[in-house]
Each structure stands twice: as structure tokens, then as C-alpha cells.
Design a protein around this nucleic acid. Sequence first.
RNA 1: GCCAGUGUGGUGGAAUUGGUAGACGCGCCAGACUCAAAAUCUGGUGAUGGCAACAUCAUGUCGGUUCAAGUCCGACCACUGGCACCA
Length: 771
Amino acid sequence: MYDFKKIESKWQQYWEENNVFKAYNNSHKPKYYVLIEFPYPSGIGLHIGHPRSYTALDSIARKRRMEGYNVLFPMGWDAFGLPAENYAIKNHVHPKDAVKENVKIFKNQCQRLGISFDWDREFSTTDPEYYKWTQWQFLKFYEYGLAYKAKKAINWCTSCKVGLSNEDVEHGRCERCGGEVVQKEKDQWLLKMSAYADKLIDGLDDTDFIERVKTAQVNWIGKSEGTEIDFKVADSDEILKVYTTRPDTIYGATFMVISPEHPIIEVLKDKLKNYADIKTYQMAASKKSEFERVELSKEKTGVKLDGVYAVNPVNDSKIEVWTSDYVMMGYGTGAIMAVPAHDERDYEFATKFDIPIIPVIQKITGNKATNESFKKSIVALVYNPKTDKYLTLDWKDKGGRLLIGGTIHDNEDPIDCARREIVEETNYVDLKYIRSTFPINHHYYAFNKDKYFEIEAVGIYFELLSDKKEDGHLDDDEVNCFDVEWVSKEVVEKHIKDELHKTVFEDLTNPKAYTGEGKMINSDILNGIDNKEEAIDKILNYIESKNIGKRMTNYRLQDWVFSRQRFWGEPIPMIYCDKCGWVPVPEKDLPVLLPDIAQYEPTDNGESPLANMPEWFTVECPKCGAKARRETDTMPNWAGSSWYWLRYMDPHNDKEFASQEALKYWGMVDWYNGGMEHATRHLLYARFWHRFLYDIGLVPTPEPFSKRTAHGMILGEDGSKISKSKGNGIDPIDIVEEYGADALRTYEMFIGDYELDTAWSMNGLKGCNDF
RNA sequence: GCCAGUGUGGUGGAAUUGGUAGACGCGCCAGACUCAAAAUCUGGUGAUGGCAACAUCAUGUCGGUUCAAGUCCGACCACUGGCACCA
């Protein structure tokens, strides 16, 4: 039997002593850069998932070496952040000592797995020699106006007591601890990532990322092309700007909604008759956590701005202005024109607060023909609540089962028409009107008249109050042609085949906004157009010619909130001087080191622990020499990982973050692997950061990563997620002890679809061991 | 709800431009070796029917194109991931 322990330790020692996996910076060979996301070195050591991606990319690295490439396959540590800080608080050690211990464990485990990393290039983001350059790059952002400090309502985790970026919030809760997130006004450093939205979308064309990663990025950036339109506030000089993607529906705007935080509320204070009510609503909205506010399927709430009207710029009609928390200040202009007929949210709101609804788009059913005759019709639905049945006419071979239809006479009210038709065809008279549909544009061919028709039809809903009947007068050609029958909902849905009647039934039993395309009505210059693009184009030209609005692109992506009220992160290298304002730390004074002895506990007042250390933050202003104060917030833990692949190219350089020769030689990372959980956060930050360095001429390529893959998770034997609390973890080093690294690595490659989560199986491991 | 990806034996997965579906590995079954087991070696292994030769059916479902479809087209279903009161 072969002694894997002896063999593995012999060769691992040989590899280490002879630097077998070293990558060379001045090589004539073609380069190949393989990268795995560097881990956060926790105290527990590697988990069973790590060897999966490490082995996969190790195989790629090995293949490329055999093919004659100069392969760079480096490893390092992403060690700033909360876990080390919490560990330090608990055990009263400096986080940097905790990191040192954990790195030792991780490195040893990687070596025992036999991964072919080039250890000469190892570093940690917490090394001052490294974070000096993170700080240096931050100063570049500042120099180019992309880092700015602003008082802004940001996401605040009440449990971590720390500000969060948008990317750190998941379903309205803190991504790390699941705690409540509220909006809190704070002075924050931000990086202007929003300015890079288009570049981050377009740059994806230069990459070979797997599709789901690309989509995740595109969705996150959330580009939306629309229009900004000015609505005047009646009897004032104020203007409310709205953002909409459907300017074609503007004639149907029957009210406006502004976000509770909208500044115009203060401006219009004197006009408002219910200012106090609005204030109350505002307070309630601000106290709601992000989770509550974002929660779906909740009833709409809102308050009318009593005394204030806006003017629809296309038809000068005066419309009400409301405030509601379904409109967000952070997107678009914080105000919308509400078109209840054609937007589900506006419809819900209008229905609840009894605001008029004007349809401007007719749904089109049937098939259009040339030479159509036009008429107006009704389709009536009668419901008997006592029997839970609907009234239908069975026309047999002359049209099958239908609701009650009829043509509107000159100057006849549609509801009267419906009542008349019901009496004529069924004799029922004791009816209560409930509701109507929006008009529908229907096209059909009438066999009996050999004619094509275009009709404008309205569906009308009645409830039967009693069985009382009166004789109606039927047209001669209708006598004895149909049977009147009460049928169940199921029968209606199954047996009514006519498209118009089907549509009417659906719209009447489940009334909602119509968000599709159709024929424009009630819309002045747009009337008759039945193509959305054409309608949008026409109204846009009109709006622009009247100078009341312009085309506008909006993004979901926001600026990166870059301040954290924490100890264990890169200090932001800025100094505040009463006279000079914010002054960057001069390059020669970098890095700004973290103090060696400190309190790490976060404070309740939302300040960093560093704010309790005057001996650290008190400095001279680099500009005027007066007494000044360092920024005490630190960078988010995503900062250090936003450029680390560049440092691997030239890790010992103390003059630059990496030399231009090294950057040019290594170029893009050829193959980058990491978890799906980083598809929007780390990957977005990293691409943004890199693109900025490219724009200012510091790196040679616009995109950092060529190919990006994402591995699935390894689950416990029962298919459930591995977690500390369940105790179903598997220690890779235990497996290495018993079966050897080869068996473990082979099994992890055969365990299942690389992209998908897969359950661990001891049996499968044995199979690979036999193989 | 919107966007994207994926569906082939018990299992991981093969199948170049449409051309013998299931290569190869694991597992399983049988045999050899052994007192016995493990390891190792040999053979078998999609399903159904048949003693057999063989036949029929099978690539998520239903249809279509074609001499020929896992592969191309259309509709749908399931699962996974992302986004979501985004105007």
C-alpha cells in the first residue's frame, strides 16, 4: 500500500524549498494569471468549500504551466473587518496579532492541500506596506473629485452600529448580522461610483464572465431610460420635476406623489393647510426601517398636500399632490406623475384614496382588418351572489357561449345600454351597477352581416338583486337563437372563447391597471397611435419643443458609502482643519497607521473608536500648521480587496503600488474565480476601482478580469447548508489526514456541477480514493 | 412580477458543423483471490418485453422543421441565481 503521508510531505517540502511555483516578472514566456478570491483568515481555518475552487484553479494553473506559460497563481489575505475586531474585543488582543495567528493556520493548510501558490508574493491587506497604497489610491479618488464628503441619509445598522453601503443591505436588512437598517443622516465619505454606471455596463463586453454574473451586475446597476418632466406648482414659481419611463401616458396623470423626504414640502410650508399632518407622516416614514418600507404587498399609505396643486404641462389641468413612502427620494427625482390607469402602484393608491382614473391606452383584442366599420358596444356581466353564478347566453353553433353584448345607440349611456340589452335578452331587471372596465379596442368579423368591425367596448358589471323579470323585446333575428344560462366561474373561464368577452370577464372580476400597449385615447396629439415607441417619440418631441422636460437616464446604482465607524480598517487619510477644510495627508506621510493600543468597542453615538483617541487624531494641518483633526472613520472592508490582484504583480515594490512594467506584462487576470455572493459587491467595487485607475493612466487595461467563474457551495451529507450551529461541518484537514490531499482534491472535482451547490458524501470520497 | 442560467441512467458527466445517445469514472451486481473481510483483478450494468437473436421506448413536457434532432424553431413546465413599491 502506498504511503500518501510520506509522499505528500516529501514533495510539499521540495516544492517549498525550491520555489517550484514561482512566477517570474521578467520572463520571455507568455503569461497566464490565475486568481482565486483571497480568503478572510478566520480562526477556524479552511472549510470544506475552499479546496473546491482552489483545486479547480490549481488544475488550470498546472495545465498552463505544462503548456509553457509563465503562470501567476498567488495567494494573500483579506484581513480587515469585523470578525477580527470582534475577536479582539472578546479576547483583549490586538486584531493584528489575531490576524497573524490565523494566517499561519490558513497558509499551512493550503500547503497541506498542495495548492501551487507562489508564496513569495503573499501579503495581507492589513500590512502597512499594502494599505499604504490603498490609502494612496483613495487620495487619487479625492484628487480627481471622485471622493467627497457629504451629509447624507445612509443605511445604518442598528446592531453593528455602523453605516452601510447600498450593497451591504439585503432585503432591507444588514447583510452581515441581519439587523434592522434605518436611514440616518451622517457625514460620510463617498466614492462617486454612479458616475461609472455606463462604463461598468459597457465594460462587460470586454469580459468573458459567466452569464449569471453579468446579469447580476447589469441588474444591480439598474439602468433605466426615461424622461424628466417639469410640473409647475399652481400659483407659485416652484417646479416639481418627475422622472418617468412612460411619458406616453402623461395625459392620464391625475395626481402626483412626492417622497416624504422631498424638500419642496418645506418650501411650500405656508401654502399647506395640513402641514402638521404631513410632518407626522414624514416622521413615521423616517422611523420605519428599510425592511418595513420596502416590504411588498402592504397597503399604500399617504397624505394629500392640502392647498397645493400641480399643473399637468401638456393639458394645463390642475392635479392633486400627495406624499407617500412608495416614492423614494433616492431614485429619480423623488417625485412621480401618477397614472393610475396604467401603473399598478398608482392604481392601488388612487383606488384607496378615491382619486380619478383616466385611461389613455386601450387594450386591443381581435385581428385588425381593412375596411372596418366603427361602433360602440357594451359587454355586460351579471353576477348572482346568492348562487355564485354568472349569466351567459349559449349561442350554440352561432358563436358559442358569450356574455351579454350589444351596440350603444346614439347618445345612450353605456350603463343604460347594458341594462336595456340585459332586459331584452334575459328579462332580468333588478340589477345593481358595480363597475366598468376601461374601454377596449376590439376587431372582429360578423358572419351574419359579412362585415369587419372595429368597436370600442366597455365591460359593465352588475349584481343581481332579485329574480324579478320583465318582458324585453328581442330583434327578430335573435329569437330562439340562444339559451340563457347561469353558470359557474369555471364554466365561464373554460367555455367562453371570444377574446373580447374573455378579456371583459377577467378585467371585471380582477380590476387592475393596464400596463401593456394599445391604442391611445384621451391624449390630444397622441390619439389613435397604437404603437408605444411611436407614442413616446411623439410626446418626447413635443415636450422638448415646449421646453418642459428632457430625456434622462437613471440608475439604481448609487455612490459607494465609504466610511465605517470602526477600528479595524484602513484609516481614511484625510485631515480636517478649521481654516483649510479637508486636507489630504501628504504622500510622504503615508501610510496613516492604526494605533497599537486602542479601545475597539464601537460607540453608541455613531463614532469610530478612533474618535476616543485624541493622541491619535490630533495633528497639525499639513497646509497651515494649525491644530487639526484626522478623519476617525475607517474604510469599508471592501477597500483592500478592490485592487489586490494588481499588488500580486509586484508585491514588494515600495515606490509604487506596482511598476508599470509588471502591470503591462501581467495585464488582465485571465481567470478569476470566486463565490456568487460577490457577483454584485466585490466584483462591482473592484471593476469600478480598476476602471478609475485606468482612466487616470495608472493601469493598462479598462477591465481587471477576463474570465470570471463562480463555484457552488458544498453542503452537508443531508443536503443542508453547513453551519457552525448545526455542527455538520467537515474539516478538510481531517480528510487529508485520513485519505490524503489527492483523494480529497479529486473528490471535490468530481463532487458535482462546479457551478452548483452539491452535497458532500463520504461514499463518493471513498470512490475517488479507490479510483 | 421582471431579467438570466440550467434540465441527458442510480451518480459526476461524454456526444466537433444536426449523423450509432449514454464515452470515461464512481456506484451497484456477479465471479476470481481469501478462513473471512478490505484492497486488487475479470465480466455485466438506461427502461420494458423475450430463453435468445432481437424489438420497442428513452436526453424536463408538448408540438414543428429534417432522410436524420440531446443539438435547430415555437409554446410550456421545473429548478437555481439576481433584482424588485426603481416610477
